[in-house]
Design a protein around this nucleic acid. Structure first.
Length: 441
DNA sequence: TCTGGGGTCCTAGGACCC
DNA sequence: TCTGGGGTCCTAGGACCC
């Protein structure tokens, strides 16, 4: 049995190009929340030396000089395009595991190991997906997930063929001796430094190390990696992803925040979003944590204390109700807060998640009140779905200015596929001329 | 003077991923 | 001036138990 990983090329940038084809073959970048960092780049933008994760303001001159197209993140568009790609991939594979917004593992039923027929099948899938969705993808094939990821890397960066397969890794000395361990799935900066300190630079060198040594130096994760590289699959294929164990809602502030009142408002807003997210996945939380981060980029004179504060607590009744989660979050904030520090980011985490059906009531709590709240929340969701996000909100989360905790997004494109008001318009008199401006009728 | 041994559960923190 | 957000897995070590 062989595995494949299908990976969308420069996914966010590619999504933007589908609806604005004038940016094909031109440098494109997509920014993170608050237009903070560069999180996606077209090949042309990569060639200009714009690094992944670099703060926007550090490259804004370079971007202007080279007429790079800049987009704020448009998660609704990317989420919808992702669903289309995944649906098509599922039709082409025997089994599929959606791994992230732009990647999926596929299982092929291939009886023989004729490389050219395997590649032909991958090429066909790539062609279908690009035709059907406008998104270019790459495919790597191998007996294990780690090797499939490596094949995908080769398909994109080295052979540049779009599809690549490693069938018998132990016979690939020449190829694997040229690849740095840095490219491996599961090797980050810390492990890379450690491997180098032992004189291990290439994938082939790593493959020669004894299993016991890897286990000792890099825990069971290292051992699994080694086995996977030798073609023995150790990382399971999960068609039905297990339910989430944690959920996080957090945001960096656009300016430093000092006052507890402001943090209270932000935390309430996050708590409301969290409750919404829980209800969307039909889950309830047993525990809530909140955390505060002091601006890591600024030095505070005479302060050597911690820059991360967190507090957790248990909900009286496991819940996805905004009011109950907000109430606990505010109590936790009181315990967390320290006067005189400049906070840059805050967030809330829900954990101990359960399926909603399994809800256990505590005999000491007011069940009737909880059930009434649950009904109100259902009503909330229906209203917001019908009349648009934010139509209804709890008072705690909207004390003052409405959009204070909303992100900055000065370059967002239209939500072409999920919003009636932002559909792509084609001018019937000039069929090739497409209107792009948001709000323009 | 001499202070066991073995287990489980929980949490914080590190490392990784996209 | 301006520096993202959301996840998972693993381990060590403390608390607690018998």
């Amino acid at each position: 049995m062989l595995l494949a990983i299908a990976d969308c090329n420069n996914f966010y940038a590619s999504c933007e190009r589908v609806f604005q084809p004038q940016y094909i073959n031109r440098p494109v970048v997509v920014l993170s929340n608050n237009d903070g960092c560069v999180v996606a780049r077209s090949n042309e933008a990569k060639a200009l030396g714009i690094a992944m994760g670099v703060p926007y303001w550090q490259v804004s001159q370079l971007i202007e000089k080279n007429k790079v197209a800049v987009f704020s993140s448009n998660y609704q568009l990317y989420g919808d395009m992702s669903a289309r790609v995944m649906q098509m991939l599922a039709q082409n594979a025997y089994e599929i595991e959606i791994y992230s917004i732009d990647e999926a593992f596929l299982k092929f039923e291939i009886q023989h190991d004729n490389v050219s027929s395997i590649i032909a099948k991958a090429d066909m899938i790539r062609k279908n997906i690009e035709q059907g969705t406008g998104i270019p993808i790459s495919i790597g094939i191998a007996p294990s997930k780690t090797l499939a990821k490596l094949s995908n890397h080769i398909a994109k960066k080295i052979s540049k063929t779009g599809s690549f397969a490693i069938i018998h890794p132990l016979e690939e000395k020449e190829l694997l001796s040229k690849l740095s361990v840095e490219e491996l799935w599961g090797i980050g900066p810390a492990y890379y430094r450690k491997l180098k300190s032992y004189g291990i630079d290439t994938v082939w060198q790593l493959m020669q190390k004894p299993e016991g040594w890897m286990r000792k130096q890099f825990t069971v994760q290292g051992l699994r990696l080694l086995k996977e590289l030798r073609g023995e699959p150790c990382i399971g294929f999960e068609e039905d992803p297990t339910e989430r164990q944690n959920m996080v809602v957090s945001r960096a502030f656009r300016r430093d925040v000092y006052k507890i009142e402001e943090l209270k408002e932000a935390i309430s807003h996050f708590a409301e979003r969290m409750a919404e997210k829980l209800r969307k996945y039909n889950q309830i939380a047993t525990h809530i944590s909140i955390f505060l981060l002091v601006n890591p980029y600024k030095n505070i004179p005479d302060y050597k204390g911690p820059r991360y504060f967190s507090q957790s607590g248990q909900l009286a009744i496991s819940s996805s109700n905004a009011t109950e989660i907000i109430q606990l979050s505010k109590q936790l904030l009181q315990l967390c807060f320290r006067e005189g520090l400049n906070y840059k980011k805050a967030g809330i985490m829900a954990w101990g998640l359960q399926k909603k059906e399994g809800l256990q009531m505590s005999i000491f709590e007011n069940e009737a009140k909880h059930l009434r709240m649950t009904k109100i929340m259902t009503c909330f969701d229906q209203m917001n779905q019908k009349f648009g996000k934010g139509t209804l909100s709890t008072a705690a989360a909207t004390v003052t200015s409405h959009n204070r905790w909303q992100r900055k997004e000065e370059h967002r494109s239209n939500r072409y596929t999920t919003s009636w008001a932002e559909l792509l318009e084609v001018n019937a008199n000039h069929p090739l001329q497409i209107k792009m401006n948001r709000g323009q009728k």
